[in-house]
């Protein structure tokens, strides 16, 4: 490997005193400060901020319009167009979940149920949103396309128990998804 000798830049006497540069620096920082005070921060417009800095004032201003299609928010369970549970509690998401946020208790669908063909569904399905890292592995691993990362990101609570999403809450967030899933297909 070639050795490149980097010379220190030769400083003039003025530069050596530093005061000039320090003053220049102060002018730059002050300019930013004044622009910010006047509500004209650089890049504020593009980000739709108030101009007092480029930060969005969160609860009042939201970025929802700009949320990309692939945004990974809270994981949730979805039902199909006939309100049937897609999840069959195969527990693959529980297995793959890196922070072990998912806990499933499998259950059997009673034989008198209209959709007893599928035999299995989750009795309980808890996702601990304190643990969840929004990685999307559950969505990726799900063989029944039953769990999706929804764009919901405002997951708050004042107690730990509130942060555990149970089955009901997960279906509430998840809503409906259409599209054929193999298990309902009589021919498969």
């Amino acid at each position: 490997m070639a050795i490149i000798k980097v010379e220190r830049p030769k400083l003039t006497a003025g530069e050596k005193v530093y005061f000039g540069s320090i003053f220049k620096g102060m002018v730059i920082t002050l300019r930013h400060a004044f622009k910010s005070l006047l509500g004209k921060s650089t890049g504020a417009e593009a980000l739709n901020s108030s101009g007092m800095g480029i930060t969005m004032q969160y609860p009042e201003q939201k970025w929802d319009d700009q949320l990309p299609e692939y945004y990974r928010g809270a994981p949730a369970l979805v039902t199909d167009e006939l309100d049937r549970e897609r999840c069959v509690s195969c527990q693959l998401c529980e297995f793959i979940c890196p922070p072990k946020a998912i806990k499933i208790t499998p259950g059997e669908i009673p034989s008198n149920d209209e959709w007893a063909k599928v035999e299995k569904r989750p009795k309980e399905f808890d996702i601990d949103m304190i643990r969840c890292i929004y990685c999307g592995m559950c969505e990726e691993v799900c063989p029944e396309q039953a769990i999706y990362l929804r764009p919901d990101y405002v997951i708050t609570g004042t107690e730990r128990s509130e942060m555990v999403h149970d089955k009901k809450r997960l279906y509430e967030i998840g809503g409906k998804r259409v599209g054929l899933v193999n298990k309902w297909n009589d021919l498969k």
Partner: peptide, 11 residues
Amino acid sequence: HPLDCPICDQA
């Protein structure tokens, strides 16, 4: 063979 693996106990 059906695609039952997600619900099959043998999986």
